[in-house]
Design a protein around this nucleic acid. Structure first.
Lengths: 242, 242
DNA sequence: ACCTTTGCAATGTGATCACAAATTAGCAGC
DNA sequence: GCTGCTAATTTGTGATCACATTGCAAAGGT
């Protein structure tokens, strides 16, 4: 089991490059969610985040509202916000949507991917493998995301990317939780197949590779593993970490 | 050409049924966007909406933030918010995503649609045809949306529906604009095919019907029509209607 | 020992205020 | 008549405050 509070890269907030506080808070939280630093079931309080990021509650409220509307967080009847827990049904839906959206995005990106881009992708894939080999979960999650997104981003930044990001934000906390339990060693990907398909401009092979990558990524969760995860996410850290 | 400010159903705000002001504002704006009462290019001001809905700017800010993150509105570099204008590229992307998401949703809904539900759908489809016959644009848009959503809603409320709604909110203002120009008479749909496929539990036929419905709905926009629409949406009502 | 109750702390919500940036309107100069 | 500058207005942003509700915990009673 792995602690989720490592490598928290404290918030220098930098100088404001014409970026609003609300936007900065949003990106901070988004990054933490996508890297799995927010565990499913954890409750997120307005003033808590405000204190953590050293800003006033106002911009935090707006950032949370955005994240909620993207499915990254959820509000309960009590109007409390928390990181959603995963269910089997939701997991299936997310996988189906990922396949649907990401095969489409990859297919649209294919014609615009040149040799340079392909080389960058191969380098990223190597870094993914390297992270797996070293057991560096944070680095793996980051590079894995970079690999996928730098494909999709090419052809369809306006409409498709926000949707895909939404799905990933719903996916990532659970992914991190699973990896923390079963380790990075059981991870399989189809990145090599996807890259070859991109090189040959083979639409069908690319779709197949992406679909396989999504489906097999965490596809083989056994019954007992689901039960374990259910037990963990049964509101454990409502009071929450720090 | 049709005025977009009719049937504005003024806001009694009702008694608060345990619903926050921010949520109420969000739903109000969402409904207006989905029924095409917000024309592409129109600028949306914080205090303007607040005054229109007779609430303070605070909840409006949060509602706008949600709508922006769903693609229904957009913020410019000036931090001004407006209804996005449509481009050819965006239109193609939206269609592709609609096909991808809605065929998936329909397929997932199919096993759970019983005779009662089917009867309700047939009634809705009849009302759609009736609205077209009478030239009632508002009623058409409302029933048309009800028809589609009451299919998708069945199997996949949690993950798929929010994504589909997001796409529709990006689609609707433009749809209304087009209908206002070319009229409701040229509208074609594949609702009957979809209903028959649902009745026979024919997956392939259903997917085909949904895809055709999306693609043919506005698929036949001619070059000159695009130019006309471009001219209209070239920031006309930045100062904005009322 | 267990349950209920009472009080306090924490949280979300909405309004108001202050401020900076940007847009607009008005006016002088060419 | 058109352009360029200045002042006033509008607008978004963020902080603070007040209030209602919820959650929690300590204390009291059975």
């Amino acid at each position: 089991m792995l602690d989720t509070a490592d490598d928290t890269t404290l918030h220098p907030r930098a100088d404001d490059g014409a970026i609003t506080v609300q936007e900065w808070v949003y990106r901070q939280l988004k990054e933490r969610i996508l890297t799995g630093q927010f565990v499913p079931g954890r409750s997120v309080t307005l003033r808590g985040i405000a204190a953590m990021l050293e800003v006033s509650p106002t911009p935090v409220r707006e950032a949370l509202r955005r994240l909620v509307s993207e499915g990254a967080l959820e509000v309960h009847g009590n109007r409390r916000v928390s990181v959603p827990t995963m269910t089997r049904r939701k997991f299936d839906d997310l996988c189906a949507v990922r396949v649907s959206l990401e095969t489409l995005a990859a297919e649209r990106a294919m014609p615009h991917i040149d040799a340079d881009h392909l080389a960058r992708l191969r380098r990223l894939d190597a870094e993914v493998d390297e992270a797996i080999e070293k057991g560096d979960v944070n680095r793996y999650l980051q590079r894995h995301r970079e690999f996928h997104f730098s494909i999709y981003q090419v052809g369809s930044a306006e409409v498709l990317m926000p949707l895909i990001e939404s799905v990933w934000m719903q996916f990532s906390p659970f992914l991190r939780l699973v990896i923390s339990h079963i380790g990075v060693d059981y991870i399989v990907d189809r990145h090599a197949d996807a890259l070859n398909a991109l090189e040959r401009q083979d639409h069908a092979a690319l779709r197949f590779a992406i679909e396989a990558d999504v489906r097999e990524g965490l596809g083989s969760l056994t019954e007992s593993e689901w039960r374990d995860l259910d037990a963990v996410t049964r509101q454990p850290g409502q009071g929450a970490s720090r």
